[in-house]
Design a protein around this nucleic acid. Sequence first.
DNA 1: TCTTAATTGGACAAAATTATCCGATTTAGG
DNA 2: CCTAAATCGGATAATTTTGTCCAATTAAGA
Lengths: 144, 144
Amino acid sequence: MFSKACEYGIKAVIHISLQSQTGKRVSLKEISGAIDSPLAFTAKILQSLAKSNIIESSKGSVGGYHIPEDVQSKLTLYEIVIAIDGDNIFERCGLGLRQCNETSPCPIHSKFKIIRENLIDMMKKTNLLELAISVDKGESVLVI
Amino acid sequence: MFSKACEYGIKAVIHISLQSQTGKRVSLKEISGAIDSPLAFTAKILQSLAKSNIIESSKGSVGGYHIPEDVQSKLTLYEIVIAIDGDNIFERCGLGLRQCNETSPCPIHSKFKIIRENLIDMMKKTNLLELAISVDKGESVLVI
DNA sequence: TCTTAATTGGACAAAATTATCCGATTTAGG
DNA sequence: CCTAAATCGGATAATTTTGTCCAATTAAGA
């Protein structure tokens, strides 16, 4: 469904969120350890997330990544996924037709549309803060 | 969502289905022309679909592929996708956790589960015959 | 000012997916 | 028997995704 990059990205962002709530900045090393992802690859993902202003990064000896608390409750899963994988999974025709639409639909168009709308709806309604809270409470986990 | 191989596979199977209704066998060349897919790659996909008994193939000068009519109404999208892509999209954790389940779920587990159940349900309910009929009626298309 | 610890950016490598090529095999029909 | 037209199977190539390496840059603090 999501790319590996996106999976790592979502987990990373949740972990950063979690730590940001205590005011801490988190380093790449800590993140990649916490979410069990390849360090250098994770660096690339965080780099691009920083560029698209999903997370804030600061260089230097006490640098790291963080996400302001007020942003956490506004940032949705939808936006995070778009930032990493683009809108392909939300837009692309299920059978790969270049111009699949209502007037000239692929055979699974309408059925697919329903599923996809549910997915989009769910992702737009899910914000980062609630994901972080669920991990914080121990209701869900980021590894194994 | 689906791999390219799967997209081609689904379209191919629909086209074969369509032609099988008039008793015709279809050749690889015709299929790849009809669905606008790379010929040699399509050959590989059809080969594997034949091995998993989704379609029937026959060699020789008047050979080709076909799907018996009684099979068409029984064969679901779910089975076709499984045959090509495996059950990954139906089973794999949304965040890639190796053992994500009710007792130790990833942060999006429950929300994802609902979407996925809808998807599985839809695909199990969609049979090949109805897809072929919709193309036959001109209600949907396999190209552009 | 120097050291240390952090991100950044570019080049590169490995793996997976997608795609191609070609010879072998099969089968119908002249 | 021979030819034509089809699938099969194996090797290989191209592309994309995933992952690594290393030097450059930044910033705090002793």
